[in-house]
Design a protein around this nucleic acid. Sequence first.
DNA 1: TTGCTACGATCCCCTTCAGGA
DNA 2: ATCCTGAAGGGGATCGTAGCA
Lengths: 353, 353
Amino acid sequence: MTSNAMLVPVTTVPPTLPPSGRPAGSTVARLAGVSQKTVSRVFNDEPYVSAEVRERVLRAAEQLGYRPNSAARALTSGRTRRLGVVWLGSALYGPAQMLVGLERAARDLGYSVSLAATTQGETGSVDAAIGSLLSQGVDGILLSEPVDDQPQLRLTSQVPVVSLGRLTTASGTDVEIATQDWAAAAALATRHLLDLGHRTVHHVRGPQTWWAARDRERGWRQALHETGREVPPPLQGDWTAASGYAAGRAVLGRPEVTAVFAANDEMALGVVRAQLEAGRDVPGDLSVVGFDDVPSAAFFTPPLTTIRQDFDTDVHTAVERLVARIEDRAVAADATGWHPELVVRSSTAAPRT
Amino acid sequence: MTSNAMLVPVTTVPPTLPPSGRPAGSTVARLAGVSQKTVSRVFNDEPYVSAEVRERVLRAAEQLGYRPNSAARALTSGRTRRLGVVWLGSALYGPAQMLVGLERAARDLGYSVSLAATTQGETGSVDAAIGSLLSQGVDGILLSEPVDDQPQLRLTSQVPVVSLGRLTTASGTDVEIATQDWAAAAALATRHLLDLGHRTVHHVRGPQTWWAARDRERGWRQALHETGREVPPPLQGDWTAASGYAAGRAVLGRPEVTAVFAANDEMALGVVRAQLEAGRDVPGDLSVVGFDDVPSAAFFTPPLTTIRQDFDTDVHTAVERLVARIEDRAVAADATGWHPELVVRSSTAAPRT
DNA sequence: TTGCTACGATCCCCTTCAGGA
DNA sequence: ATCCTGAAGGGGATCGTAGCA
């Protein structure tokens, strides 16, 4: 590139940075005296760049504050290295904890995260969220809590989708499910109460649109069936302590109810509160087990017996599978290394005889 | 550019859809018998497209499953219509609730959300998160809980940044702060206890890296100063019930401690638990006030007196300001329509005389 | 190592065509 | 007729990067 003075172009190039407002790779290239392609090579760790050139490019980039334009990158490569997460917009412990894990797992694999929240009880909001994510051009989608009456999931053919929960309508979609069977954990809780000598166990379940609620209810039923107990009709809750409180009041006049398994810790707290407020004793008059082991559960009064959840395991394998499908790699055999665990505290005891 | 048959290129164009794997606007244009530019017009609601042509384009797009490529759009326009949120990866109620509000507010304004979590206590993680978001090409950044020892915020000059909390190091950065003064709310809690007749109020504070913790401590100090009370050294917590429990145990042997204001509800729960476990009564022997009014607080034993937070107000104005700056609009005067509110339940009472 | 080019959209500017002055 | 104005739509350059020769 021998440039003689005569040919210096008329095009007075301003230190161009529109419209992104940021320097481009070509600017870096000019400063470093190399081609734009070489700059690209350096930033993608491609071979055939001498250490010296690499160094020069990096210095020039540093000086200009250059960083690769992800939009341009996405345009040519067809991939964004971004995952979409369909999240139930809720400050509930479970979903929040899952989101934390998802973000971290994605980041560890070199992906960023776009969030699309759904609104509970709003029909079609899962589909809307998926549509929004597809428009943003994510490489894959995670369904963190696919709460919906009838998600159509029509749009899923475009990118891989992994769900962290079983769907009510799994009709022929190629959505992959990555989750453990929480029914086993619920059975654990139920058996704990039976082992203490309770005749049967009542259940405060969560909203039926949540797979987590359905799983837990199923586990409770199984445990009762296996031991030949009567299966009382479940009490309906909505995850909140208030709904647990309502359920707790509902059983106040029924002395045959001696043990309750609530589908999460907040509802268990509500059940307990209803008893204490009515002058009954927990666990003396009623044993209560929760689910999740929220960090505060150990400090409830009485400290709550519950099932410890480990969201991270499920979440990690889900993200790994999704990324594997995106990158067309073989899916690693799932290493379900972790098992739900019963944490016995002081809200359960043998029934009064 | 007259092309005679001889020059018709060898390039047999396949029904192209690489590398995005999705049909492009030009494909839609061909099917609809219009130019690519017209397709662009239709999808941007630009004028000068007849109703009939618009209809034809939309039908063709529908048929092909076309949706505009956001990467290409971002490349030419220089904006992504995405906001970056720096989030403390934590399932704590406050941050989770804020995130819910942020997503919704952004969506309402036509922006999507990219998430970058920070790791508590990891130096430079706020800067790393910001860097990651900038690399993704967000139009603006929200700092939801700027927890860091010394965030450098060097990179902020590139896009507008709005913080939901006061920063420890506000050194000359053009970060805008959008938040109410929570000190007033903390003062409210403190005065409630003083009004009940307590000599002074002890405080379990949160981590000093959190602005929320600093604000609340400041409000507590102010209330004590204004009424000429002694300001006891604060007890240090970390937001968890466990840390509140430790603080609660620490004051067990000190009968002069009759009232505690904890910086959040979980720590308050821990304080209460330590008392009850030791056979002391709440509020009989110790009054306790929390902060946040988490949904479960009403079902603690005893039901917790606390300050009701409304995250939505702050969050909405923050997002609105950020978007206004992005779009170079005048910033609307902030309408602080909401005031923190004391919720009196059963964990506070007059001291024993 | 380097150019050249494509990726898919936007932006600026152009042409065409009615209809009215 | 000439000129103009506004609607309707097209053409080409361009954004910043990665693939191919």
